[in-house]
């Protein structure tokens, strides 16, 4: 079971069909307006001014309200009123499903509770991110889901050591990496030695003995582990209101270690496996 959102959970359980979910999503899309559209509906901005703000956001990385304030189009009090109205009018997917007849009002709280229990395994546990690193809450999700998937997908027993800012990832026989771009940018890296690679392969292929497997297959299982971890991180981060795209995973030559590029900040999350071998998760943040 992976990180999910409520509508997906209901379709997977067979409670609602994909057609009904799509109807509910379309209803949501028609009701849930953007900040700019709400500001227009309240008479604070014109559509031309919203377009001007959107244009300016393409050249400077500021949120809508901050850009509107910078251009002198919206004051702080008005912006707060817009946010409040947007929040109060927000139609959640569960409510939308009731409106389109996919669920009854009585069923909704029961399924929401079931969903909450199902996803409790993915509630983020506290991971301390080194002081001074921006977007700490997001990197916490990166580390926490790596640890959770190490247990659930790779079936490894381990102890996580404190994270630290570093200038290089030490040498490892296998390093799988994934680029991510969006609200946050960088490279996710997962590094293991041969013993852990075999154990990950054994778990992913669901076969006890992997001694006869080709190198390509063993490496592929580590890359697939990274793919599963990063996809689920993207889902969890989306729940926090941020988004990023991921590239297909790749294998890096890590026998001499990897230096953190000068334009990036490296955070290492060392992992001690129960058999004494070391592994590491790292993020090179752009």
């Amino acid at each position: 079971m992976a990180v999910m959102f409520f509508g997906q959970y209901l379709v997977e359980r067979g409670v609602v069909t994909r057609e009904v979910l799509l109807q509910a999503i379309e209803l949501q899309e028609s009701v849930n307006l953007s900040v700019g559209a709400v500001a227009v509906s309240m008479g604070f901005l014109t559509e031309t001014e919203v377009e001007r703000i959107n244009q300016a956001q393409r050249t400077e990385d500021l949120r809508f309200g901050d850009m509107a304030a910078k251009l002198g189009l919206l004051n702080q009090e008005q912006f707060q009123q817009v946010l409040t109205k947007q929040k109060n009018n927000h139609l959640y997917i569960g409510e939308a499903l009731v409106k389109v007849g996919g669920l009854t009002g009585e069923e909704l709280p029961r399924y929401l509770e079931e969903f909450k229990q199902n996803q409790a395994q993915y509630v983020t546990d506290r991971v301390v991110i080194p002081e001074g690193v921006a977007n700490a809450q997001i990197w916490e999700v990166f580390a926490d889901l790596t640890y959770k998937m190490l247990t659930r997908v790779a079936r490894l027993t381990f102890h996580s050591e404190p994270a630290r800012v570093a200038t290089a990832l030490p040498p490892f026989s296998t390093i799988a990496a994934m680029e991510f771009t969006g609200d946050v940018n960088g490279t996710y890296l997962f590094a293991v030695q041969d013993g852990a690679r075999k154990r990950i392969a054994s778990a992913i292929l669901n076969q006890e003995n992997v001694d006869l497997e080709e190198e390509e297959v063993l490496d592929d299982t580590v890359m697939e582990f990274v793919n599963v971890v990063c996809g689920n991180i993207a889902a969890k981060v989306a729940q926090l209101g941020s988004s990023f795209e991921i590239e297909p995973p790749e294998l890096l030559d890590g026998n001499s270690g990897l230096s953190v590029p000068p334009d990036r900040t490296g955070i290492l999350f060392p992992i001690s496996l129960s058999d004494g071998e070391q592994a590491s998760m790292a993020i090179f943040i752009k």
Binding site: M1, A2, V3, R18, R152, G231, A234, A235, K236, S243
Partner: peptide, 25 residues
């Protein structure tokens, strides 16, 4: 896909005609 839990991706897949979306793992 591992991206099944990303609401936008899931919705886009259904809108494009996917019959279902299974998340990894």
């Amino acid at each position: 896909t591992s991206l099944g839990g990303v609401g936008d991706k899931y919705t886009e897949a259904l809108k494009l005609g996917a019959r279902n979306v299974i998340s990894k793992p």
